[in-house]
């Protein structure tokens, strides 16, 4: 499997009610990069994420996964290489047991049963939730649910992991575990979040969005230190940076 990049070229999108959600977004993310997408509410983060696996199709511009633009024809292949972890694990864990849920993707790929078993076990082991395999997902804690949701996506063995607010609703310990997990991945990671402190710790690059456009881009420490700009776009400088001595 080719290690893929993802590239957005002048991506524009309007909803049927004529709301312009994305106005010409362009960036490129290389393989293995860990990139955060931040921005205030309504900046267009979620709309952007929905373009990355072809759930929404651009009104203008294009999304390239590898060198392939996402179209009706390539969508199945794109979905195999781009895994999306959704914000509410309840939306993602719909099967009666953890095992079935993690097996959902591999089974849809028509893999043989032994391979499905192997992938499910590997994915659950990766997130440290193998002991939960026979449990019904709705009985789990928020942290466990999130971990299983990530395992469900890992089991499809994607090259690119897209996550929407992965640290929301987690207690500090759960959040710390998640961050350790994410920094251990070798896949490309695209993380939409409000958790700027997490971004500082686990992302190499940050893209700041507002009103459907990219307003800043760069290393988190550099971007976040521009306090005036951050405030202008509904964000703030995370404490972790403020109290750190300049190097």
């Amino acid at each position: 499997m080719s290690k893929q990049t993802i590239e957005l070229k002048n991506l524009c999108f309007s909803y049927p009610d004529k709301t312009e959600a994305l106005r010409g977004i362009s960036f490129r993310i290389g393989y293995g990069e860990s990139v955060a997408i931040v921005g205030g509410n309504g900046a267009g983060k979620s709309t952007l994420l929905q373009h990355l696996n072809g759930y929404l199709m651009p009104s203008n511009g294009s999304v390239l996964v590898g060198d392939q633009p996402i179209t009706r024809e390539t969508i199945a292949a794109v979905r195999r290489s781009v895994g999306v972890v959704f914000q509410d694990p309840d939306d993602q864990l719909f099967m009666p047991t953890v095992f079935d849920d993690v097996a959902f993707g591999p089974l849809n790929a028509r893999l043989p049963p032994e391979e499905v078993e192997r992938r499910v076990t590997a994915a659950l082991e990766r997130v440290g939730m193998l002991h939960l395999r026979e449990r019904p997902p709705y009985k789990l804690s928020a942290g466990e649910k999130r971990a299983v949701a990530i395992a469900a996506v890992l089991a499809t063995e994607p090259d690119i992991l897209v996550m929407d607010e992965p640290s929301s609703n987690l207690d500090p310990r759960g959040r710390r575990r998640l961050m350790n997990l994410l920094s251990g991945f070798e896949q490309t990671r695209i993380i939409a979040t409000h958790d700027l402190e997490m971004v500082v710790e686990i992302c190499q690059r940050v893209i700041v969005m507002d009103h459907g456009t990219v307003v800043a881009e760069g290393r988190p420490a550099d971007v976040f230190m521009d306090e005036a700009k951050m405030l202008r776009h509904g964000l703030e400088c995370p404490h972790i940076l403020r109290h750190r001595h300049p190097h």
Binding site: N53, R79, F94, F99, F104, G105, A152
Partner: peptide
């Protein structure tokens, strides 16, 4: 979320 994991109208269980 189903579509992003390759759902094609058939729910499969091992």
């Amino acid at each position: 979320s189903m579509a992003s994991r390759g759902f094609d109208g058939q729910v499969r269980v091992l």
